[in-house]
């Protein structure tokens, strides 16, 4: 087994969502918390990709941001090569900000419109003092631009002169500028057209092969995640409901939510679509503010029983590293 690069243990992130004074009820003063990430654990091996999927509002972006410490974790650990990085002071130790980088979702909003491409990409290089002379920095910027498939002449242009796909390439070059080991791709392709998406996916996969990068690939496009990921984790309302090797999760989805999610994806085959009987699921994602005890998916689940509403299921191993959090996994699988 390969070396584990990043391990997340029992990670928790709650956001304050106001409070309410109720005169005739107890507790008298109730605080509301949005449970964005609720006790999540997973690990990523070096040089592999973990795909994180789920509906909007399920907390997948928060996971990525908490790992980068754009949000401070409220509990749990983020172990990078065995060392907890969730609680070290950032200002004194820049090692990990260099090793972990991020590619953002919206290529239109994540590049400063007043900076040239060279400044955007060179900023990280300067912060970490990787190069001494100006010329060296310029060389590095050109090298990065060529690495992501842009021309070196592009370096003095401004972001508005580029198309969405090109901007996303700039975003990737910026992430690569400090020689990171781990990149969080937060919906890096969602804002792009189909044909451009494929280009960016190919670029990311090529870079992974060449530089041995490790990705956390956050997306809601299930087919793209299947293409790029070695491991896939499915999130629902702040918890991981299913995690395992990608093919295992897609071919034997064992959580009712994963099944519903996969059944909702329309596939580009008219005959198949016409014959398809199981389609999607009912209802909408519940509010993550002060969630009820028990399985988070219970309200939308067709198999839900009393136990689901009382006790939160734990992740159970089905073999081959495929884990599911459901009280009725065995029962559901034996039905078929």
């Amino acid at each position: 087994m390969a070396e584990i690069l990043l391990e997340v243990k029992d990670l928790k992130k709650y956001f304050k969502a106001g409070s309410k004074i109720q005169l005739f009820k107890k507790p008298f003063y109730e605080k509301y918390y949005l449970h964005a990430v609720d006790h999540i654990s997973f690990s990523i091996e070096k040089g592999t990709t973990l795909g994180l999927v789920g509906e909007s509002g399920c907390g997948k972006t928060t996971v990525g941001r908490t790992i980068l410490r754009l949000y401070e974790a409220d509990g749990g650990e983020v172990l990078y090569e065995g060392k907890d990085i969730a609680h070290i002071p950032i200002s004194s130790d820049k090692t990990y900000t260099k090793k972990i980088q991020m590619v953002f979702q919206d290529p239109y909003a994540s590049l400063d419109p007043r900076c040239t491409i060279a400044d955007i990409i060179g900023e990280g290089i300067e912060v970490h003092g990787l190069y001494k002379t100006k010329k060296e920095r310029e060389e590095r910027v050109c090298e990065l631009l060529e690495m992501v498939g842009l021309n070196r002449e592009h370096r003095n242009r401004f972001p508005h002169e580029f198309s969405g796909g090109q901007r996303q390439r700039v975003g990737i070059a910026r992430a690569l500028s400090v020689n990171p080991e781990f990149i969080v791709c937060d919906e890096a392709i969602s804002a792009l057209d189909v044909s451009i998406q494929a280009q960016i996916i190919n670029l990311l996969m090529r870079l992974q092969k060449e530089m041995g990068l490790t990705y956390l690939f956050i997306a809601h496009d299930l087919s793209m995640v299947r293409h790029i990921s070695d491991q896939t984790a499915v999130m629902y309302l702040g918890t991981i409901v299913e995690i395992g090797p990608t093919e295992e999760v897609y071919q034997n989805p064992s959580h009712p939510y994963t099944r519903g999610l996969l059944a909702s994806v329309p596939l580009p085959d008219p005959d198949y679509e016409a014959k398809r009987t199981v389609r999607g699921m009912k209802g909408e994602i519940n509010s993550p503010i002060n969630p009820k005890p028990g399985c988070r998916f219970a309200d939308r689940c067709e198999f839900a029983c009393d136990i689901c509403r009382e006790k939160m299921p734990e992740l159970k191993d089905l073999g081959k590293g495929h884990k599911v959090a459901c009280h009725f996994t065995e029962k559901l699988n034996s039905k078929e």
Binding site: S163, G165, Q166, V194, S195, I196, Q197, A198, Q199, I201, N202, M205, S223, M224, R226, H227, I228, E247, Y250, L267, P268
Partner: peptide, 22 residues
Amino acid sequence: LNSIPDTANMNGNRELPAIPGT
């Protein structure tokens, strides 16, 4: 049609046939 990942017949991490250019 080609730039959609073909989930039915996956064979390893092969490259997606993207349309080059814009």
